[in-house]
């Protein structure tokens, strides 16, 4: 039995301007110790997917419309608040995108670090603080014994994200959800943070869901990859399958945007156009308007089903374009002018 099995998750926001289907039928599974990367542009629904699992969607306007998320045999989406609170912070922890706003400025680091420990375990204050100091040392904060009593504003952004990691892992959870943990940080700090997460994962055997728009990070750290677009799954499989044998035009386009994979001296590739407006119904393929491949028909009907290529490698079988050719041959013809006029991918 996998640690976490998500099936057909649907989350919508019911706003005055209409229903926003932020997550529309997402499925995946994750075993102990595995790392799953969820990749997509802003607004692709990757963060909402994870907030839904933790039931952190603000309700209203948000609502989980359907699906199941079996964690250790119990459905996270339907369990009572009390039961859920026993899992949050103890068995599933979360790291958020912006370390500057995710720590409470009115409380000492020690209070915030020990909070989950004291809540979920029978441990006295002193022992908890000692554990907190050890946790800070493990994420590489110097003079941890002294700094543990400081307030968040006395730490830099990178240091705060280390604190967040220490806070998330202090209860030794089974699953860690990291929502773009490095986006708000300097490039030099990004790699350090990823290393810390990886090392702690190895030490504790934690399963990790890593949400990111950075394919490079995914390639380096993940066992499995989910590619999301417009609230839907476009492609999923092992990192190898998705990277070396990408099937969906969107996955291929994304790969093309990684700077290090591009020829030196060439203009950086950006996917033309903007992410879809998920408050309006999407016919057929969500990526159709931006798809660089030659179109073979108008998008209509339901979205394409996920088809399995081999051994767990699935992709949305787009029927509206001819994606048989490699992407380089498609792009070399007409893209350069278009990229200049249209917005960037991220």
């Amino acid at each position: 039995m996998p640690l976490l099995e998500v099936k057909d998750l649907k989350t919508s926001f019911y706003t005055r301007d209409g229903v926003v289907r932020a997550v529309d039928g997402v499925s995946f599974s994750l075993d102990k110790g595995e790392t799953l990367g969820i990749v997509g542009e802003s607004g692709s629904g990757k963060s909402v997917t994870c907030y839904s699992l933790m039931r952190l969607i603000p309700e209203p306007p948000g609502r989980i419309d359907g699906g199941t998320a079996m964690f250790d045999g119990r459905d996270l989406l339907t369990m009572g608040q009390r039961e859920l609170r026993k899992i949050r912070g103890k068995r599933i922890s979360m790291i958020f995108q912006d370390p500057m706003t995710s720590l409470n400025p009115y409380l000492r680091i020690s209070t915030q670090l020990t909070e989950a420990l004291r809540l979920h375990y029978d441990i006295d204050k002193k022992a908890a603080v000692n554990k907190a100091i050890a946790a800070l040392e493990e994420v590489g904060i110097p003079e941890a014994a002294k700094r543990v009593h400081n307030y968040p504003h006395e730490f830099s952004g990178g240091m705060r994200q280390r604190v967040m990691i220490a806070m998330a892992l202090i209860t030794e959870p089974d699953l860690l959800i990291a929502d773009e943990p490095t986006t708000a940080l300097d490039v030099t700090v990004q790699a350090q943070i990823m290393d810390i997460i990886k090392k702690r994962q190895e030490d504790l055997g934690t399963a990790v869901i890593l949400i990111t728009h950075d394919l490079g990070v995914v390639a380096g750290t993940c066992d499995k990859v989910n590619v999301m677009y417009g609230g839907r799954m476009m492609e999923s499989g092992t990192a190898e399958q998705v990277f070396y044998n990408a099937q969906h035009p969107y996955t291929r386009s994304l790969q093309k945007t990684i700077p290090s994979l591009q020829t030196k001296g060439e203009q950086l590739y950006t996917i033309p156009g903007l992410p879809p407006d998920v408050s309006k119904p999407i016919h057929g393929c969500a990526f159709y308007p931006r798809c660089p491949y030659p179109k073979t028909g108008l998008p209509e009907g339901n979205r394409p089903d996920l088809v399995e290529l081999n051994d767990g490698h699935c992709y949305a079988d787009c029927r509206f374009c001819d994606s048989s050719a490699p992407i380089e041959s498609v792009l070399s013809t007409d893209v350069p002018e278009e990229t200049e006029a249209a917005g960037a991918a991220e």
């Binding site: 933790m54 952190l56 609170r85 026993k86 899992i87 949050r88 912070g89 103890k90 922890s93 979360m94 958020f96 912006d98 706003t101 995710s102 720590l103 409470n104 400025p105 009115y106 409380l107 909070e115 989950a116 809540l119 979920h120 967040m164 806070m167």
Partner: peptide, 26 residues
């Protein structure tokens, strides 16, 4: 409405504690 309230919820902190401990001061 602050992000850190979400962090606290993710840690399993009950709503009452969120109000009294995390939000009242500010």
């Amino acid at each position: 409405n602050q992000d850190w309230v979400r962090t606290a919820r993710a840690k399993g902190v009950p709503e009452r504690t969120i109000v009294w401990k995390h939000c009242l001061k500010g």
